[in-house]
Design a protein around this nucleic acid. Sequence first.
DNA 1: TCTGGGGTCCTAGGACCC
DNA 2: TCTGGGGTCCTAGGACCC
Length: 403
Amino acid sequence: MFALVDCNNFYASCERVFQPKLRGKPVVVLSNNDGCVIARSNEAKALGIDMGAPWHLNRDRFKKAGVIVRSSNYPLYGDMSARVMRTLSNFTPELEVYSIDEAFLNLAGFADPEAHSRVMRATVLQWTGIPVSVGIAPTKTLAKVANRLAKKTPESGGVLVLADEAAQTAALARIELTDVWGIANRIAVRLVEMGITTPLELRDADPRKIRAAFGVVLERTLYELRGISCLSLEEHSPDRKNIMASRSFGRPVESADEMQEAVATYMSRAAEKMRRQGLVTASITVFVNTNRFREQDAQYYATQTVRLPVATADTGKLIRAALHGLKCIWRPGFSYKKAGVMCLDLHRAENLQNSLFHQADDPGRVELMRLMDGLNQRFGRGAVHFAATGTKGSFAGGGGILR
DNA sequence: TCTGGGGTCCTAGGACCC
DNA sequence: TCTGGGGTCCTAGGACCC
């Protein structure tokens, strides 16, 4: 049995923990630059406020309705998330932190998963102040369905189990195609064109047809809806494959100096993230965009990928590379709205020696190779392993004999 | 009439998630 | 004037290899 624990209206709930006067009131949290709505309390949802609603188009309406507005505070949400996850880990041997406000739990072996989950839910509320909902089912996709219904059904007390096929069928009859995990608008439209208009019809469709039309991902969803588990719990999150740092600007940027400053800032933020995860990058991409909402303006989007001679997380080197990339794509005369950097080709820092000495004529490389050859001749091929960190164009590192 | 049969790697684009 | 910021996976097609 899987349980999906999802924090209710997470960012809005975090704001409430420290400002009790917000309880019972419509609260929304805004994105960066107060651009648009990214979280709503139940009271705000009841007023018909949409996710993603642009703030500047709704300011007056919110004011009239007495909506309380907060700018987002990500350090707070990250901290609250860690507290919730720590609390959950007391209730299961296996926990997958799926997002900032969601976790999958393995509840196999618990005699009464529902009772267990009710205690867990009460404990999270008591210890952190965050209300959560719990959906329990034999597959992750059905646990998502159960969670959604737990939120929609006040009588459930925030915990809902879909153990048998009868319960699952009744549950699937209550939701739309796009409520199913993995189905968004585009796929829903194509499914409807095929005559599949509800989650139940998808569950009971021919898996081969679904695979032929949509691929293996949706085929898995179909089986998961039947209660056949295709997605397992992933306790240890694998290394990131990309790290991005980007922002929309509050006002359009037109000067190259200002843009350089922004790109340097994003690059150093990305480098910090990378070091925290023990990673280094062998290439970075810089991108700039004009404002896509201003259709009357000339549009320009550009990216430039810069390959690094040496994989690194060194902020100074990365900023120099990013600024070089920016120079290649900078076109004066445009009003830029957004920019960012992305680190690709990530490696674990401890495996750095593989990417560090790309350049055959690097004096550090030459010296290292000579050393390694000598040692490998004495101790056998592959006997010597070097861990190195690159700084200032040369190398510093240590080696060890593996066998 | 006949025109190998596999592989891998890379990139771009499309779709999804929170 | 003002419309978020991150991520993942899959597929198709081309280059290239033996």
